[in-house]
Amino acid sequence: MSTVTSAPYAARRTLTVRTELVRQLRRRRTLVAFGLAVALPLIVVAAVKLGPQSRGFGDGDLDLVGLATAGPWNFTLTMLLFASGFLLTIIAAMFLGDTVASEASWSTMRYLLAAPVPRRRFLRAKMIVGLILTAITLLILVAVAFLIALVVFGSAPLTSPLGGSFDVATSWQRLAIVTGYIGIQLLIPAGIAFLMSVLTDVPLGAVGAAVIIVIVLNILDAIDALGDLRRFLPTDYGGAWADALGQQIAWGDMAIGASYALVTFAVLAAIAVLRFDRKDILS
C-alpha cells in the first residue's frame, strides 16, 4: 500500500483552451501566419503608393478592386477579397490540420492522453484553439488593413462597387458582415483539415490534403459543364459576401453558404471525433 497520494486530478481541468493556446501561440507557424496577415496590407499599400502604376488597380468582375483606395473600409474589403481565395484558406487548413497530427509527430499526444486528457476533451481544445487562431489571423488582417488605409487613404466611408455609398455606421456593419461571412466560410477548409489531422500522423500531409481538397472543389466549381450540380459543392458560395455590398443586403446566397459551411464543419468534425474515440494511439 502506497503511503503517498498522487496530486488531485480533475478531468475538466485537463488541457484547457488557455493551456493549449499557450502551447500553440509560441510556435513559429503561428507567428508566420500572423505575420502574413500583417504583411499583406502593407505590401499592397506600398505597391499602390510606390509602384510604377499609380493609377491604382485594374478592374475585376466586381469592381471592388478599382475602389480599393477609396477609404479604409474599401481597402479592407479588397484585402479580404485578395486573402479569402487562398491565403486564409491555407491558414485555416494549417491551424486545424497541423494541430493533432503535429502532437502525434512530436510524440506528445500519447503523454497527454495518458496524463490522462480525455480524448474528446483533447480534440475539443485542439479544435477551439485552431478556430481561435484562424479568427485572430482574420481579425489581424482586417485591423491592419483598416489602420494602414486610414493613415494612407483617409477616412472616406464605404463606396459600394454595386453603386452608392454608405454612412460610417453602415460601413462598419457591412465590413462586419463580410468578415463574419468569410470567417464562416473558412469552416470548410478548417473542417477538412481537422478530419485529416486526426486520420494521419503527418502534419504536412493533413494540411496539404485539406488544401488539395479545397482546390479540387474550386476547380469543380469552375467547370461550367457541371451546371447546377455545383450548387451542392460547399465552396460554391465562397464569394457570396459581395451580396452584403448592395444597397439592400441580399441574404439568400449568404444564408445558404453559411449553412453549408456550418453543416460541412459539423459533419467532418463529428467524423473526426468518432474516429479519434476508437483510434489506437500508436504514435
Binding site: 480533475a10 493551456t19 502551447r23 510556435r27 512530436w106 500519447r110 497527454l112 496524463a115
Partner: peptide, 25 residues
C-alpha cells in the same frame, strides 16, 4: 520522449503539468 520543440524544457514540464489536470497538486 515527446516534447514541444519550440518551448524550453521548463516550459514543457510546466505546460504538461497544467494540461494533466493536476494543477492544484
Amino acid at each position: 520522449p515527446g516534447f514541444l520543440p519550440h518551448l524550453t524544457g521548463r516550459q514543457n514540464l510546466d505546460l504538461f503539468w497544467r494540461a494533466s489536470g493536476r494543477e492544484d497538486g
